[in-house]
């Protein structure tokens, strides 16, 4: 097949490239998605326990949700969900060719971090019982 584009130089030492914010947000979109996928059984189990009627299940639910390790995992998942959510909306706009330019893309990446981290803090403090 005929080469359509000029061969470009490849430099894939990822640790040596200073990634733009949008690239970091992008890889975190993948990472957060993978984390949510891996923790699905925990989340479905919690849903099941939260709706259970037997006293045994209700006791289990109370014990599980009061466990610090579970709360920390949930805190991580809250961040993962919020980042994935905000970044997903950003990607939907980019699909519609909105905010594709370099500056706009950088600004929206900043907004993704700003919004998702702020909401993680708000929900996280609630989750850890601070208020």
């Amino acid at each position: 097949m005929q080469q359509l584009t000029k061969p470009r130089p490849k430099f894939l030492a990822l640790n040596q490239i200073r990634q733009p914010l949008a690239a970091i947000a992008s890889i975190l979109h993948r990472l957060s998605g993978a984390g949510l996928f891996l923790m699905l059984p925990l989340l479905i189990w919690l849903l099941q326990l939260s709706l259970a009627t037997s006293t045994e299940d209700m006791t289990t639910f109370k014990a599980v949700k009061d466990c610090l390790a579970v709360r920390l995992i949930l805190l991580g998942l809250v961040w993962a969900f919020l980042h994935h959510f905000c970044m997903g909306i950003r990607l939907l706009f980019i699909d519609m060719h909105i905010g594709v330019e370099k500056q706009a893309s950088h600004t929206s990446a900043k907004a993704v971090f700003g919004i998702s981290l702020t909401l993680t803090l708000i929900f996280g403090l609630k989750l850890l019982g601070v208020y």
Partner: peptide, 8 residues
């Protein structure tokens, strides 16, 4: 999740 994880 299927599409996303499959892409990974």
């Amino acid at each position: 999740a299927w599409v996303g994880v499959r892409d990974i």
